[in-house]
Simulated assay, not measured.
Amino acid sequence: MTRNTAAELAPRIDLAVTAVEGVRESYSARPVVARAVERVADVEGSLAAVEDVEGARAITVCIGVSELDDAATVAGAVAAAARGAGDDDVPASVRVRVARLVAPAS
């Protein structure tokens, strides 16, 4: 099976993460410099940070969850979704940052 590149995989991870029940918002997990370069070049980048390291892959995503949801459960589901977004057999470590608890609209 062909290995997906980080650039191919990141948008697929973005879609998988936003499809998880309990994810209210998604934020960029990529380094500030990468985001700044994209802003200057006026290109849209993915929110997920995907890095290939020594035969493995490191994935980082950053989400917001409702204060009514169990953040740990949502984060676990997001990690599983991010890991499953690739169709190759590359081992992946996934870091999910819960950056914000979103208050429900009143």
Rank of each mutant, 00 (worst) to 15 (best):
R35I: 03
E44M: 14
R39I: 04
A79P: 03
I63K: 00
G45M: 00
S93H: 11
V65H: 05
Y27W: 10
V32K: 00
G45W: 00
V40F: 13
I63L: 01
V43Q: 05
A81L: 04
V50Y: 02
E67N: 12
A92G: 03
D87R: 15
A56R: 11
V40C: 08
D87I: 09
G84E: 07
V53M: 12
R83D: 13
S93P: 04
E38A: 14
A29L: 01
S46F: 07
V61C: 08
V37F: 05
S46E: 08
V43R: 05
D42P: 09
A82P: 04
V53I: 13
A92Y: 03
A85T: 04
D42M: 13
R24K: 11
G45H: 00
D88E: 15
A71L: 12
V61G: 01
E38N: 14
V32M: 00
Y27K: 07
D42H: 12
D52L: 06
E67D: 15
V61S: 02
D88Y: 06
E67C: 14
P31V: 00
V74Y: 06
A75E: 07
R35G: 13
D89E: 14
E67L: 14
A81S: 13
A72L: 13
A49C: 04
A58I: 03
V33A: 00
A82Y: 06
V32T: 07
L68S: 15
T73D: 07
R39F: 11
A36R: 02
R83M: 12
G55P: 12
A58W: 04
A79D: 08
A58F: 11
A72I: 12
E44Y: 11
R35K: 09
G64L: 07
G84T: 04
S93V: 10
E54A: 08
L68P: 02
S28F: 08
A80E: 15
A48Q: 06
S28H: 05
V50T: 04
P31D: 00
E38R: 04
V61I: 08
L68N: 10
G76R: 02
S26Q: 15
